[in-house]
Design a protein around this nucleic acid. Structure first.
Ligand code: FES
Ligand code: FES
Lengths: 149, 149
DNA sequence: CGAATCGTAATAATTGAAGTTACATGAAAA
DNA sequence: TTTTCATGTAACTTCAATTATTACGATTCG
């Protein structure tokens, strides 16, 4: 399966929007992340549905952030994207009658549930502001390195 | 993406083999798990490569367990299958030059690494014997329920 | 010998994400 | 008001990865 990279995508887009005053068009975002404007609209549309971003049509239209960076967590974004399946590994049959399969599923599900819970807890503890700070840190370091060389 | 269900598959097969004296043919295993004998051979072949099972050709041939149930962990099976990707969610670009993407990747990778580490630790702590015990438990309960009704 | 069984390569089917095309809708600008 | 720019969406295609199938070769036991 192809891996779902929408979370990564929207984070990239949101960072760009955070560093920009006016709205950014789907076209501009698409170009910057080497994809298609329609894909951007589709994905960002899910964030608009929960109020994280705002979109405007026509001249001077585009996408803007509609929430405080400090209050938006990765978990919220994951949910806005429809809580896609986290794991690429799974059970052969989710609702088996057979006791053998039920035993296997039960043991595997336990492990996967724990790991997923941990992941979501981590997601809750990272905000867009944290991400922006991480970017600022890397940007500053990059400037230092460039100056030194 | 289609989810990789081979771990679930081999566990099912191994439980069957554990409850059986003689060898089981690929044909028999395939029929029981509603799949194709070639798929069984391909997958079980990976376990044979690391000595967990043994295969024999010809009349009276088939698959047998070649290790102590108490010593085989889910982690070993996961490794035998080639350590397939655990997550269905990932970064848009694994080796970006852009600092924005690097920041996003870094934050996401941290979270995913932790979750994967937890999952693998869990896998280390579950043996085939544990799984067989879980099956025995369910089987006993099923017999009780059937008797009562 | 000959039937049963695994080993393996090559190919097709399936599944789900991502990309494309096409056109409708709405808003600002000219 | 007309034109232009932008989003909104549906429909379809492409792409990547797993799983299934077909075909045939190699062994082993009866
Ligand atoms: S199919 Fe139920 S036990 Fe194998
Ligand atoms: S920042 Fe968007 S492409 Fe590098």
């Amino acid at each position: 399966m192809k891996r779902d990279s929408r979370l990564s995508s929207v984070l990239h887009a949101l960072l760009h929007m955070a560093e920009q005053d006016g709205p950014l068009t789907s076209e501009a975002l698409a170009q910057c992340m080497h994809t298609n404007p329609v894909v951007v609209r589709r994905t960002m549309g899910l964030l608009r549905d929960v109020g994280i971003v705002h979109s405007a049509k026509g001249h001077t239209g585009g996408w803007t952030i509609a929430a405080d960076l400090k209050t938006v967590t990765l978990r919220q974004l994951h949910e806005a994207l429809g809580e896609p399946a986290v794991f690429a590994i799974g059970n052969r049959n989710e609702t088996p009658e057979c006791l053998v399969e039920q035993s296997v599923n039960s043991v595997l599900d336990d492990a996967f549930s724990e790991a997923e819970a941990l992941l979501l807890r981590r997601f809750e503890n990272v905000t867009l502001a944290d991400l922006a700070a991480e970017f600022a840190r890397r940007h500053a370091q990059w400037r230092t390195e460039r100056t030194l060389s």
